[in-house]
Computed example of a mutant assay.
Amino acid sequence: MDVSWDLTLNAIVSGIMLGGFYAAVAVGITIAFGMLDIVNIAHPAFIVVGAFLAYISINTLGIDPFAMAPIFAALGFVGGRLFYRAYYHFFERRGDESLQGLAFFFGIMFIVEIGLVLTFGVDYRLVDLSYLGSTYTLGFVQFPLRLLAPCLIGIAMVAAVQLYLAKTFTGRAILAVAQDPEAVRLVGADPIHTKEIAFGIAVATAIAAGVLLIIIQPVEPSSGREFIGRVFAICVLGGIASLPGTLIAAMILGIAETLTSTYFGPSWSPAVAFGVLLLTLAVRPTGILGR
């Protein structure tokens, strides 16, 4: 294997930019799985819903999807709260949230996919924004705006959610509810309402990440399946319930994937990425920033 330092550095930079996008994709699963202990296997399907909403925005409404992203995220927040209400009513309050709850989200995933197929067909769709076609160059390192913009937005999403969790009463209640729901009651917060808000945030970030996804690559209704393993891997690798850890883990996987794709071919990327996960867990089972 011939090593070109120019090629390697570009691959690393591309991996960092890809990692910023991966962080946006995984932040919702860190909340749902890491903080609420809800195995939301339908999370990638919600991402694809966001991608198709972006497609409708530009191709049907003629509105820039970035401008519509806050509205899409708000709809996702409302939908996420309704999903949690259903999950709590039928499963969590009866103590059936493990296998039955997993089946619930599997069902949602397939219903969403079928609905998208019936609405849009199985063809790949892509959002083409002219201002994202440029590439910035620093020396021999290239920064495609189509990848740089989702990276920066993804990092901003993680920072915003982390700031909300750390600085607001509801955010601190979300951090506490996964550890001790009864203690949350003692400080005047309702654990169920708190989890409902947290799950709404998780789905809202998934919808927003979908807008970024269709900017980067074409999507079709089942595109989310390729992210199922990746988002859980990032969540575990970074440390359960750690958003800074999620960002670091996303960067690690992004770099691992781009280096592998560059020198060994894209088919090896998932194997190497999960190899990094297994190695990290062997050395530190709690993840990078886990306690």
Rank of each mutant, 00 (worst) to 15 (best):
274 F>L: 10
216 I>C: 01
186 L>H: 03
135 T>K: 06
183 A>G: 04
276 V>S: 11
253 L>G: 09
260 T>E: 14
217 Q>C: 03
190 D>R: 00
187 V>Y: 01
244 P>T: 14
250 A>R: 11
226 E>G: 13
201 I>K: 12
234 I>F: 07
234 I>W: 03
207 I>N: 07
185 R>G: 02
162 Q>S: 12
184 V>H: 05
265 G>H: 10
171 G>K: 02
133 G>Q: 00
192 I>F: 01
143 F>M: 12
142 Q>Y: 15
185 R>Y: 06
273 A>K: 12
218 P>S: 13
191 P>C: 03
167 K>F: 09
202 A>S: 14
220 E>M: 14
194 T>L: 05
230 R>Y: 14
220 E>Q: 15
151 C>V: 08
246 T>E: 09
163 L>P: 06
215 I>H: 06
161 V>Y: 10
245 G>C: 04
198 A>C: 09
139 G>D: 08
237 L>F: 00
170 T>L: 08
207 I>S: 06
177 V>A: 02
212 L>T: 04
142 Q>F: 15
264 F>W: 14
170 T>R: 02
254 G>E: 12
222 S>E: 03
188 G>K: 01
142 Q>I: 12
277 L>V: 05
223 S>E: 08
244 P>N: 14
202 A>N: 03
277 L>N: 00
194 T>D: 08
186 L>G: 07
259 L>M: 04
246 T>L: 12
233 A>R: 04
149 A>F: 14
157 M>G: 11
240 I>Y: 11
146 R>V: 12
136 Y>F: 10
142 Q>M: 13
249 A>S: 08
174 I>S: 01
203 V>D: 00
235 C>V: 07
160 A>G: 05
253 L>E: 07
259 L>F: 04
173 A>H: 01
135 T>N: 00
198 A>Q: 01
266 P>N: 14
170 T>K: 03
275 G>M: 08
228 I>W: 13
202 A>C: 03
238 G>Y: 09
134 S>Y: 12
173 A>R: 07
161 V>S: 01
184 V>C: 00
267 S>W: 14
219 V>I: 05
165 L>S: 02
203 V>H: 05
184 V>F: 05
147 L>S: 11
220 E>P: 08
133 G>N: 00
274 F>W: 10
143 F>C: 09
196 E>S: 09
150 P>Q: 03
170 T>I: 09
164 Y>L: 13
133 G>I: 03
147 L>P: 05
178 A>V: 06
251 M>N: 09
206 A>Y: 13
156 A>C: 08
227 F>G: 02
163 L>M: 14
173 A>G: 07
170 T>F: 05
142 Q>S: 15
232 F>Q: 05
207 I>E: 09
261 S>Y: 12
262 T>S: 09
164 Y>T: 08
169 F>P: 08
160 A>H: 07
167 K>G: 01
223 S>D: 01
276 V>Y: 06
221 P>W: 00
159 A>Y: 10
154 G>L: 09
277 L>S: 00
148 L>C: 07
191 P>I: 04
166 A>G: 02
238 G>R: 11
203 V>N: 07
135 T>E: 04
176 A>W: 05
182 E>V: 01
179 Q>R: 08
219 V>P: 02
177 V>C: 02
255 I>E: 06
